[in-house]
Design a binder for these strands. Structure first.
Lengths: 193, 193, 193, 193
DNA sequence: TCCTAATCGAGACGGTACGTCTTGTCTTGTT
DNA sequence: AACAAGACAAGACGTACCGTCTCGATTAGGA
């Protein structure tokens, strides 16, 4: 990675930060989490190793920041509220599954999971990044208010369950089965009462 | 790990196999998956590195065999069928949560997940080991037959969802929230129609 | 090292110069030449690295200036001329050997030599600082004039030889042998004809 | 450096040892002691760093072994005894000076001295390698027995003095002056009584 | 009974990456 | 313009493991 303008100094270099996060995201997709090394990032970013260690305490912190910056998912998980829970959640699901069904999508998911399992900071931000908290649980709450879902439905847990099923399933089975299973699950959980 | 009788010869040494798997399981609990090294296992088991590489192709294969042998979970996940799905699944859930709520239980879960994410072989066996396939899906099928669950309930996916919710939740939140959330989820999903 | 009054400005700061040379000399004695770093000096002197690089081109230049300023040898190598060459040179020798026989004296000598070997500027000033040129050769010249030494005696070379013997010997042997050997050598070289 | 036959195993690889010492000697002449790094040696020798650290505790130990193996001085310092001390020592001196007067000879001498000053092991072997102990002192002893030198002449110290004068002089002056000075010194010290 | 062949513990090998340290240059804001 | 502070690219440090290999000892089963 080339840095055209070398701006060194006692204040943090924005160019270096950008190059590092960029290289991290690129390598995360290319070689996966377990083969992503700090030295590799430094090499790819055209940056000294110490510049990475100065601002991030670990490989996980690097991934976590890429996650929050949306550098690993160039997608928009927010989906409009049409009044129909099932349809809305299925829309959201389509977006999630499009990531999974993309080339190397399964590998990407496994890498994300490996990162989340090894580093608490990554785990903390993973759910948020995938839009569970931001969208899914909120949409289900509305559905409860609208009477489309039982009043005692544990909306947070249902969100975890849907995404958890996808993740767990993608650890073992093939992608197709995972995707179909997720659709069946959502259809069952959000069927009209 | 000490091997009192060193028996070299043209057939596989059962003592070495035992010592290696034993050391692997011990180190998995002690230092976690990410700090578990082949050299460390060899040292702990009092075994040459080559003896490990001869019989297992990777760190993941070692973990996978420990999983299947029940060396990482000294528990019994099978629970008797009392005729009440909710009660039975809650019994299974208690067993699962007792692992999670044990000292270092969360760390153990994260390590397992890291191993599963990095190695397909581990991922393939993880569900089975936790009793999803063996018990949960089967019990839910019986519930469908008994009319306790809707006829179109996707039992495999419900199993994935329950375990997935636990796993996903344990990546970020604290243990207590995970456990309570899992109980709420199960109670909601299996509530009498 | 603390600088109570920080005076920055368009002229060279005498306080900074002093603090830097002081810190260099202190560290030279403390950690030796090979562990003396520019960063260490800056830290110890409470000075920015650039202030060092602005005025000295290298680590060696720093040492050389300490040498010329007499900051590494707080000693007086000049010895009065009593008319007896042997006695006078033995007096000078006592001063030199008192440095060598002091605690860490050998280490100091090795550090000096390391500095001189790595940096020409240091080497150039080492002889002068130890008083070979300033005193020894001159005193021997007088002895030639007085007839105490052969007319064709190469006085510069004899000075080099005496100091060289000490230095060379202190590289390998123990201090005691070096000191006694030096005394024997001087007694032999300057014995009455 | 290529190693044609890769002979790994639980016994020390002679090929690796050879390649390492060879690379060390080559780099010592090429880049000098202060720019000689372990990584550089490993790279040049086509060897893992650990293989160096396994067998030598430091950069100095590497140099010391090269010294004793005669890899830094491909010369023969022994000179026949013709019965004439002066002539014999001048022959020895010619050999020494030919090293010094060779291209980069001064740099080589400075590097040797830097190595000796920083590492005791190197210093211990330096004198022996240059033939002071092996040849010079012994030849002077014979001269004492033959009556060519005073009976009380401290032969060891005279040896140190001659070599020390060369070394010390080569730290500051130019090569020509050093060489001529050494010849004058020897002629003076060993002049017929 | 000997011989062949596979296994064992041990550990050296060429490598890669770790996280730390220092180099010499550059920049910022202060005096 | 000089200063203290310190970020920057570069690269060496010494350590830990990787997966492959060699070694000499050990032990089974076929000749």
């Amino acid at each position: 990675m080339w840095m055209n303008e070398h701006r060194a100094g006692p204040v943090r270099s924005a160019a270096a930060r950008e190059a590092i996060l960029d290289a991290t995201a690129r390598l995360f997709h290319t070689v996966g989490y377990e083969n992503l090394t700090i030295e590799g990032v430094a090499r790819e970013a055209g940056v000294g190793k110490q510049t990475i260690y100065r601002w991030w305490r670990s490989r996980g912190a690097l991934i976590a920041e890429c996650l929050t910056d949306g550098r690993l998912f160039p997608l928009e998980f927010d989906v409009p509220d049409t009044g129909d829970v099932l349809a809305d959640v299925e829309s959201w699901l389509d977006v999630i599954l499009s990531v999974l069904e993309a080339p190397n999508g399964t590998a990407l998911m496994r890498s994300l999971l490996a990162a989340a399992a090894e580093d608490r900071a990554v785990g903390d931000h993973l759910g948020a990044s995938l839009g569970v908290n931001r969208f899914l649980a909120e949409r289900l709450s509305v559905a409860v208010r609208d009477g489309q879902l039982a009043a005692d439905a544990p909306v947070d847990q249902l969100g975890d369950a849907i995404l958890g099923a996808i993740i767990f399933s993608s650890l073992g089975s093939d992608t197709a089965a995972t995707a179909q299973g997720a659709r069946d699950l959502v259809r069952y959980l959000l069927r009209p009462a």
